[in-house]
């Protein structure tokens, strides 16, 4: 917000703004909140101290407890807003998101569900995690997307493993890539219509196929052993579209 009584239209704020969120035209200073990234440069350079900030909501954080006793927290972006990364960043820092679901019990595992792809919000979700679980499918699409995300894991220095979903629909190229890249394939889930139906109905794979329970427990144990036994683990699961 600009204090018009103090502003001298010097234009310094518009000059430093890399996002063109300010324009000084004639006698007016225009502010475009949708373009603002909130870097604070304009208020620091204003020689008159005429600029102040106000919150501009771009999304909503919420939290609750699932029927199974897990805390579930999410960030939801408002329609028409361009930037998801600040919401991911805020969610990671929001204390209620990590309050124990049952008072007195410590949280020792944090699972983050990353957006698909390899863009900024994905990196922000992965940053700070102890382990990355990359979910893919044995198709050219799955391989393509996996090849995008693996270098980020390497750059962030976070150990990673792969789950091949919909095993059986495609070819062996994903498995070959994992071997070449030194990525362990921790689990394979076959393509079955009953799984697709269950997921569409909002049920989990383990609810639809209880025989997978032990395999998921083993998966988690493997990951915990890779990281640091008994330490709190932040696990980020990333993948291509809808894997």
């Amino acid at each position: 917000m600009i204090d018009e009584t103090r502003c001298t239209r010097c234009g310094r704020c518009a000059e430093v703004c890399e996002y063109h969120a300010l324009a000084v035209v004639g006698l007016r200073v225009l502010v475009f909140p949708a373009l603002c990234h909130g870097c604070g440069s304009c208020l620091r350079v204003c020689p008159e101290g005429a600029i102040s900030e106000r919150q501009h909501g771009i999304g909503r954080l919420s939290t609750g407890v699932t029927a199974g006793g897990c805390r579930l927290s999410q960030g939801l972006m408002h329609v028409g807003e361009p930037m998801a990364t600040p919401i991911v960043r805020a969610l990671k820092r929001w204390p209620p998101a990590f309050a124990p679901a049952v008072p007195g019990i410590d949280c020792t595992l944090e699972i983050r569900d990353a957006p698909p792809g390899a863009s900024c919000p994905v990196v922000e979700t992965m940053r700070g995690a102890d382990y990355l679980l990359l979910v893919t499918e044995p198709t050219p699409f799955g391989l393509h997307d996996l090849r995008q995300v693996v270098p980020i894991a390497t750059e962030l220095g976070i150990p990673a493993g792969v789950v091949i979903n919909r095993e059986g629909i495609g070819d062996a190229a994903v498995a070959a890539y994992c071997e070449e890249a030194g990525l362990p394939v921790l689990m394979r889930i076959p393509m079955e219509r009953r799984f697709a139906e269950a997921i569409a109905a909002g049920r989990t794979l383990v609810e639809a196929a209880p025989e997978y329970g032990p395999a998921f427990r083993e998966l988690l144990a493997t990951i915990r052993a890779t990281v640091a036994p008994a330490a709190p683990v932040a696990l980020a699961a990333a993948g291509g579209g809808g894997r």
Binding site: V16, E18, Y19, H37, G38, C39, G40, S41, R44, C120, V123, R127, E155
Partner: peptide, 26 residues
Amino acid sequence: VCRFEAIVAHDGRFAVDPIACEGCAA
């Protein structure tokens, strides 16, 4: 001044994390 945690300190030296940098030039 960086609001995006893009300046990282290493042994008393500072460097920019290009992934975290939002390009604001602050």
